[in-house]
């Protein structure tokens, strides 16, 4: 099969970008989208042009590096997969495919299709952890955790940090990411002591980073390669307001 590509090319974060057109010929429908880009890049290199920069690594949908906006949807037309798990059979012979990087002010473009998502790391640093010293942990079975809670925490923990939620949201809100990260720990008994400070700090950092606000449209959840539920956003809202109220009225040690 053959497809035409409209690819966003941008030299670096300082310069303006624009679309370039390419043709990808003689493709095997069982090729992954990134393998198709490999082929295009190989041709570009052989022609003496500069290949398209795109983020990728594990190519099995778990590292969260790949991040293309394909025909207006993060990670391409299929549901519940990352860009690396999108295959050419999802397109028709002769299609024109528009490929853009994930865009948000909090995610500056590094080059071409590569976006810098360090803002997520910042959020994580402000509270996405349980403070436990290495070696200070009690026996793993000391605290039983019901299977339903463990499974729900696992649903949240499935987040691969790719940023598709931000890319899909018309407001570039990071609520699904933050809610998944905070939600996982807030659900588990291990996360309880720091639950309130966790949500307050993570939300404050998220707000500072320049993400937009959630307008409850759930595009994030629909675009998420792990289909993380917007229910965690609801939980984050609840946890945040209760933490705020508690902060106002809670007794404090001297």
């Amino acid at each position: 099969m053959n497809v035409k590509l409209r690819v966003w090319r941008q030299k670096n974060s300082e310069t303006e970008g624009s679309f370039e057109n390419y043709e990808a010929r003689d493709l095997n429908p069982n090729m992954s989208f990134l393998e198709m880009l490999d082929v295009v890049n190989e041709d570009l290199t052989n022609d003496g042009s500069e290949p398209i920069a795109f983020a990728h690594d594990c190519r099995e949908g778990i590292c969260g590096t790949c991040s293309c906006m394909i025909d207006g949807k993060p990670h391409g037309p299929e549901t519940g997969v990352a860009t690396c798990q999108t295959y050419m059979r999802s397109f028709k012979d002769g299609d024109t495919i528009t490929v853009e990087p994930f865009k948000a002010n909090a995610f500056p473009i590094v080059k071409d299709l590569v976006t810098d998502r360090k803002a997520f790391d910042k959020i994580q640093r402000s509270g996405g952890f349980v403070s436990v010293r290495t070696g200070a942990a009690p026996d793993a079975n000391a605290i039983p955790i019901g299977k339903d809670i463990a499974d729900l925490a696992m649903d949240a923990a499935a987040c691969i940090g790719c940023g598709a939620c931000v890319a899909a949201c018309k407001n570039s809100s990071a609520m699904l990411f933050v809610s998944a990260k905070a939600g996982q720990l807030n659900l588990l008994p291990q996360g309880q002591p720091e639950k309130d400070t966790r949500v307050l700090n993570m939300v404050a950092t998220m707000d500072e980073a320049g993400f937009g606000n959630c307008t409850n449209q759930y595009e994030c959840s629909a675009a998420c390669p792990k289909l993380i539920s917007e229910e965690f956003i609801s939980k984050l809202n609840r946890d945040y307001m209760s933490a705020s109220v508690k902060k106002l009225f809670k007794a404090k040690a001297l």
């Binding site: 436990v132 070696g135 942990a137 793993a140 019901g146 299977k147 923990a157 996982q184 720990l185 291990q190």
Partner: peptide, 17 residues
């Protein structure tokens, strides 16, 4: 022990272990 304390959601039995 360490991973469980960090909140790693390992698979569990119905009884919570």
């Amino acid at each position: 022990d360490q991973c469980v304390a960090q909140g790693v959601p390992f698979a569990r039995e119905y009884g919570g272990t």
